[in-house]
Nucleic acid binder design. Structure first.
Length: 601
DNA sequence: TCTATATCACCC
DNA sequence: AAACGGGTGATATAGA
């Protein structure tokens, strides 16, 4: 019994579309082929009406490669999204995740992987460039695009035929998320367009001023470029012996700078400058004409099934200060809602470790762990035992990444034997978790694959990092939960702007944002319960109403610095200096922390 | 002048 | 042998 048998109609669908960075897609043409009857539709954009030219109801299946693109075109045309989506890209990723895929994950790569006839890659590139160029198109160009679109559909049918036997019902769940991804990409993240444009215009000036203020006369920077040669000369002049890498090059990482700044105070400003400059990256953020940050979420891109949007184009990619550009439009609000201790909760639920479950449900797993280990009394609080809690927190987080005693010792500034003691305490406190974790690694190694509750699979080879295997159940099931929450929320009509690994950014009317947050949290809770066999993960929310901007605590100082330098060069048009959010950050952000049973850890 | 590589920084 | 999971991407320098 094939997955396809339950559908009356199966439509293989491909759009060509035009979508400059930050813009919503603009469909150019559509080709669709019904698998069993051979019925075929090929339409240029002016022939596309207000509904799909084929059935997209519950008895039909829409098949595409990278279906978020097709779904984006549905949205652009005002069409209701199809009830059932099968995305052969998602299936191909799942089928080959962890394996060597010689020709990439595109449609051509998938065809090549299975030894199916492949169209000319040169032609594909030419046609893609034609779509990127945008209209108007001559009659010949239209014919070429439609032909190309049709050839992709033929290729898709070959691929479906090859992959059909391996398809499982769960494929529809993955396809369902591609619809949600399209909706989120469609909404995008609201930006302060004016601040954004001023930043882009004043970019080089900001860098110049920073360099000038701190280290202009030291000969370490040539223009805006750090010169190792210049730095070496400066070190010689200051009579400083600097650590070197095995390669002989100067060690220029921040840890080394930190170490050296402690011994030589004159190094500190240079470290600050390097840190600041390293965070000054934003030119690539793709912002649409509607002042919204919009980019491909790249669903299923990572081995754990996470989204992997481009760091440079996505508002949540670069340094956290960039998030200050996120600002709800008039009368609107946004909320950043993240799961509390998501990976710890997943580990607790899936392993069934009773102590871990209690620790999660206590609201402060780290302190609870310290108490379990006998390092803190039962009545200890976050305030009364901060140092102890920090150590046990580092241990919990470290074990989630399979950190060894040496790294933990280094990170926490403790001895290796102390680190060993902490790691042993974790094993002793959560024995069932460790048995479960060991079993997962054994299973993966013996079976050559490891999978999530809903079937996302990573294939395991001789070179697979065992720490990666140990981390997989937490990270990959976390991704599963996130995808499901995105489905629930978007299907409920919540305006989800973006997923951020363990969080959702949502938007709504300022007057109703509390309701929106509660509804979203309900979706997130339900998604976690669905994946974790009834175990609910709680979430915390941070709400920002217009005219305030989103601000991550970690980014405040940098935001303030950047805005100061920007104002010095290019005062804003109204002459009043940068609005409050740039001036006095501590008071400028309206944050309403929605109370969660878990509180903040 | 362009590309490849090593190193580093950032995100969750 | 390395010793922190999953990623993207910028930068500086060396080499073609």
């Amino acid at each position: 019994m094939s997955l396809l048998d339950q559908f009356r109609e199966i439509w293989l669908v491909d759009f060509e579309f035009h979508a400059p960075p930050g813009h919503r897609p603009e469909p150019l043409c559509l080709v669709a082929l019904e698998l069993r009857t051979g019925r075929r539709v090929a339409l240029w954009r002016d022939q596309l009406g207000d509904r799909p030219p084929f059935d997209t109801g519950p008895d039909s299946l829409i098949v595409a490669y990278y279906a978020s693109a097709e779904c984006g075109c549905f949205l652009a045309l005002g069409w209701e999204l199809p009830a059932n989506v099968l995305d052969l890209y998602a299936e191909f990723r799942c089928e080959t995740c962890g394996r060597y895929v010689p020709s990439g994950n595109g449609l051509l790569g998938a065809l090549a992987y299975y030894g199916l006839p492949v169209m000319d890659a040169v032609e594909k590139t030419a046609m893609r460039d034609l779509a990127i160029r945008g209209g108007p198109y001559s009659a010949e160009e239209r014919t070429a695009l439609l032909d190309y679109c049709a050839s992709d559909v033929r290729a898709l049918s070959l691929l479906l035929d090859r992959m059909e036997a391996g398809l499982h019902r769960r494929a529809l769940l993955r396809g369902r998320y591609m619809k949600a991804a399209a909706v989120m990409e469609w909404h995008g993240i609201p930006f302060d367009g004016d601040a954004w444009r001023r930043l882009v215009a004043g970019w080089d000036g900001i860098k110049d001023r920073l360099i000038q203020e701190i280290g202009g006369s030291l000969g370490i920077y040539r223009g805006r470029t750090f010169s190792q040669e210049g730095f070496a000369r400066w070190l010689a002049k200051e009579d400083i012996t600097w650590p070197r890498l095995d390669s002989g090059a100067l060690a220029l990482d921040d840890d080394t700078f930190k170490l050296m700044a402690a011994a030589y105070p004159q190094v500190a400003p240079i470290r600050e400058l390097r840190t600041a400059l390293s965070q000054l990256r934003l030119q690539e953020l793709s912002v649409g004409p509607d002042d919204r940050n919009r980019t491909l979420l790249s669903a299923y891109r990572s081995r754990t099934g996470r989204n992997q949007p481009s760091n440079s184009r996505f508002a949540f990619g670069p340094g956290t200060w960039i998030r200050g550009l996120i600002r709800p439009p008039p009368d609107r609000a946004v909320a950043y809602i993240d799961w509390a201790q998501q990976e710890f909760g997943i580990a607790a639920a899936l392993s069934g470790d009773p102590a871990m479950i209690r620790a999660y449900q206590s609201g402060d797993p780290y302190l609870e762990f310290a108490k379990l280990a006998g390092a803190a009394p039962p009545d200890a609080t976050k305030a009364s035992h901060k140092a102890i809690r920090d150590q046990y927190k580092a241990t919990v987080l470290g074990t989630q990444y399979c950190m060894g005693p040496f790294t933990l010792a280094e990170r926490s500034a403790i001895s290796v034997s102390e680190a060993n003691r902490l790691l042993a305490a974790h094993r002793r406190s959560f024995p069932r978790f460790w048995r479960w974790s060991d079993a997962a690694v054994d299973y993966a190694t013996l079976n050559g694959r490891i999978h999530t509750v809903f079937g996302w699979t990573q294939h395991v080879g001789p070179f697979t990092n065992p720490r990666s295997l140990r981390n997989f159940p937490m990270q990959a099931n976390g991704a599963e939960i996130l995808r499901l929450a995105c489905c629930y929320a978007t299907e409920a009509g919540i305006q989800v702007c973006a997923p951020v690994h363990d969080a959702l950014l949502v938007e709504g009317p300022a007057g109703q944002i509390g309701e929106v947050v509660r509804a979203t949290q309900a979706c997130m809770r339900r998604a976690s319960a669905d994946v974790l066999g009834g175990f609910e993960l709680e979430s915390d929310a941070k709400i920002v109403c217009h005219p305030d901007r989103y601000m991550d605590d970690r980014g405040r100082a940098m935001w303030t610095t950047v805005m100061r330098l920007l104002d010095a060069d290019t005062p804003p048009a109204d002459g009043r200096g940068t609005p409050p959010a740039g001036g006095s950050p501590a008071q400028s952000i309206k944050e309403i922390d929605v109370v969660s049973p878990l509180g903040a850890c």
